[in-house]
Design a protein around this nucleic acid. Structure first.
Lengths: 317, 317
DNA sequence: ATTGGTTTCGTAACTGGTTACGTAAATATA
DNA sequence: TATATTTACGTAACCAGTTACGAAACCAAT
């Protein structure tokens, strides 16, 4: 199997870790024999926490060593049977099973001290021959995975790669149907299509583009999966309104909304706009949070041609 | 369980590895879901070796991925049942079970490519945040453990520490019994006590020390566990003979013979000797190999007062 | 005092691996 | 050609952990 992991890449890190773990545990079992300590490697963590004298309950031990309580329970049973530890019921709490080292266990504890030293030295010496410290590397991984799981890290990479495959292009006639469908889908899911919707969606050329607005289409594998419009406003405060943003639920998680928003912002900036406006509804949580991420801030209510609008936001470019 | 491994020391490296492995494997299972690949982490190594097109036998796969053939056999059964791989008997060897990816398996292989990339990147990014590279550290450990197992490394540390606890001191009257017993033990195990043995062992002061010889005693926990004599010779070729070396079988593996031999060599050098002589028997393999390690070379036979002597050696100081 | 939720810990079943062992085919040897 | 050894691989049993679930004890709020 030499070199298998050189070819697989990091995908197989789990397998590789398991193999190394097995090899080390196997040797560990024999190391106890070397010192005449009749103990199994799997007992060690339990033994260790008890070796500091205090009696502990099953759950306490489990938490401390990072096992399930069931595992600790089994190990304790085996060690009791061997006579290394003794159990007694907690006086004040009848559920608790207090366990501690027996006289025989304490005896083992004496004997094992030399083993600690030798194993530590053996590993220390081995580590001295490596460029990369396994022990410290594990510590770092534990810490980093605590912060953010491997799953989430992979998810982020996936999103990153997939959003890289998304192209945002300017509207063309062939996207008219997609512009209609994508918007109709979410509007009629959460609300009702209104008169202004039909006007803008059925004739984007007439109602948006000819009036100096712009429409962007997000393509994934050359399929339109998201749209967004930048509509010219007749208002002293604002030049453009960001509207009609829609992303196919089948293409979620690729940051498509963000890419469309960015495209609109850039176009507006290019056209010399200084402020963007938008209307939305607070039940659309992901949309609102996207707008926030883009830099939009809530502003006082204005009157709107749309019934569903219950929040207004602006962005200073 | 935070910080548990900070206190245990390296003894618990097996436990720590297992915990990390479990956490990673758990996430890996979910990662497949992210890509719509209905695969289990444990299948991956098998899948991977087959993904390069060739059909392989169970044993070949097992060897390549470092599992037992039984494990591969089970995994293959599951994957066949899922329709990812297909089996067929080898034409030329009826025992072999050739397996390869099915059409469905090849399809999965297409889908999984993106996953490879993302996982690799996720781990790469994680690694970039660490000071110690886990992947490379594992590689180094695998290599070093291949060279010399953890068990042997611990064994060496043990020996080193224990031989440090052995003191070699000059003979005193209180060690007369030990000098007799330790020698009598091995001589009568392998041979028969001879007249010369009784003389030297019953009166070491008269037969060895008074004639300008020396005796060393190895103490372990202040108990005599080994002895060795440097006997003045009446010979133009040699000044001293190394003889009556005995180590208690209860104290084996602590390099006691070597320490005694060293002590004799040093004393002889101190006394201006230029060559040491010894007699032994070839059935005493460990003794002969110790003498070799000390630098003794076989020389032509000489006549000896001992029947058991069938090899003679010398050491130029 | 009752009731309902939480904690402790045990049993049962499952999981992903292992070793032990048996059988059949292939290969080596007398 | 017959016989012994080796190889491929399957079944069974085991192992060290897990999750699921349930019972009893405890706690808290009526």
């Amino acid at each position: 199997m030499t070199g298998f992991f050189d070819t697989t890449g990091k995908m197989a890190i789990g397998s590789r870790l398991r193999l190394l773990t097995d090899k080390i545990t196997e040797d560990a079992a024999q190391v106890y024999g070397l010192y005449g300590v009749p103990m199994q490697p799997k007992w060690f963590p339990v033994f260790y926490v008890l070796s500091r004298g205090e009696n502990k309950t099953i759950t306490e031990i489990a938490r401390e060593i990072g096992h399930s309580h069931v595992s600790v329970s089994k190990i304790v049973r085996e060690m009791v049977q061997k006579g290394f530890i003794k159990e007694k019921k907690d006086k004040t709490d009848g559920r608790k099973n207090l366990v501690g080292l027996s006289a025989k266990g304490l005896e083992i504890n004496e004997k094992i001290a030399a083993q600690y030293i030798d194993v530590n030295n053996a590993i220390e010496e081995l580590t001295a021959q490596t460029k990369h410290d396994l022990w410290k590397a594990m510590e770092e991984w534990e810490f980093l995975l605590e912060q953010k799981s491997l799953l989430r890290r992979v998810q982020e990479q996936q999103k990153l790669r997939e959003s890289g495959q998304v192209k945002v292009v300017a509207y063309q006639a062939k996207y008219r149907q997609a512009f209609y469908d994508l918007n109709e889908e979410w509007i009629s899911t959460y609300f009702k299509m209104e008169a202004s919707d039909y006007k803008a969606l059925e004739d984007p050329e007439g109602h948006i583009l000819k009036k100096g607005g712009h429409i962007f289409v997000a393509l994934y594998n050359d399929e339109p999966v998201g749209v967004c419009a930048l509509i010219r406003m007749n208002d002293p405060d604002y030049d453009f309104e960001l509207a009609k943003m829609a992303v196919s639920p089948r293409a979620q998680g690729k940051s498509i909304g963000w890419l469309l928003g960015k495209a609109c912002m850039e176009k507006a900036r290019e056209l010399g706009a200084s402020k963007l406006y938008l209307e939305s509804n607070t039940i659309l949580k992901p949309a609102i949070s996207l707008y926030h991420k883009m830099g939009f801030q809530k502003v006082a209510a204005r009157k709107s041609p749309y019934e569903r609008a219950n929040i207004q936001m602006e962005l200073v470019l």
